[in-house]
Simulated scan of single mutants.
Amino acid sequence: MMWLQRIRTSLVMGMAIALIVLTGCSVQSDVAQAPPEDGASDLMETPMPAQTANLPRLNGEATVQLTVNGSPIVIQVNGNDAPITAGNFVDLVNQGVYNGLVFHRVVRDPQPFVVQGGDPQGRDPNFPASRLGTGGFIDPATQSERRIPLEIKPAGGSEPVYSRPIADPPELPHTRGAVAMARSQSPDSASSQFYITLADLDFLDGNYAVFGYVTSGMEVVDQIQQGDRIESAEVTEGIDNLQTDQ
């Protein structure tokens, strides 16, 4: 019956969302900050966390090309509305972190959801597939995992809100082809794992940080299978907008 199908779809999509949350980064505290009080507006800015001082920042836009299965996927990265999240991604691309990494999670049933990759542990073909989704980028300078705060700019806002989900519509919504950071339940736990949406997923808006969109090659994204690898990732435009020295 139709109502049974709706229930099944809701349950499966709920499980799929949980997979983004639970496998976004390595295990850590799940303490989350409270959402805004009823009636509070997210247009009120949240100060940028102190830990962002040493993180890369993208002052403007950049273009990144991923090559998967021999075909290009072009991503326009938006540092105007998500400077820390975009800067982290462009910096990791520029360092070659994503070269050879596997897409460890692909969810298309019961309806298109996301393809997810970016776990550095996936470079090793002998690493157990069941454990992929637990790793993040280990910064050689600190020998610890780089983590970035949740960063979401409300539509019409002048600055992003940090370290908490927002209730207002975001400037960068989860439309088909959105590129966003995976994280654990802690808002400030994103590292290197990212996902690309296979459909409009507005129920993720305000909870995960979108930082760009696929502008060419969605037909390639649509064909990605679990276990496919990013053959190469490169910044083709806008590298001069990347600020790594604070």
Rank of each mutant, 00 (worst) to 15 (best):
P170R: 05
F137M: 07
T134F: 03
G117V: 05
D188T: 02
G79A: 01
D188R: 02
L92C: 09
T142C: 15
T134W: 02
A178K: 09
N94W: 02
V74D: 12
R57T: 04
N126Y: 12
S186I: 11
G100V: 06
F103R: 00
P187T: 00
L58M: 06
G79C: 04
P140L: 07
P187H: 00
V179W: 02
A53P: 15
T175H: 07
S158C: 15
F103V: 05
Q143Y: 14
A167I: 15
P170G: 02
Q76N: 15
P169D: 10
F137K: 08
F194A: 03
Q76K: 15
Q95V: 09
G157T: 10
P187V: 00
A86I: 04
T67V: 09
R105H: 15
L92S: 00
E61T: 09
L92I: 04
S189F: 00
S163L: 06
R183S: 09
V74E: 14
S71C: 14
N126C: 14
F103S: 05
S71W: 08
Q65R: 11
V97N: 10
P120M: 01
F89S: 08
V90D: 06
R105Y: 08
P140F: 07
A50H: 04
A82R: 04
S130P: 15
V97D: 13
T52V: 13
V106M: 10
T134K: 05
G60K: 07
P56Y: 03
P187C: 10
L92M: 06
G87I: 00
I75Q: 07
P110M: 03
Q185T: 14
N54S: 10
I84N: 01
F194S: 05
Q76S: 13
E145T: 12
L66H: 06
V74N: 12
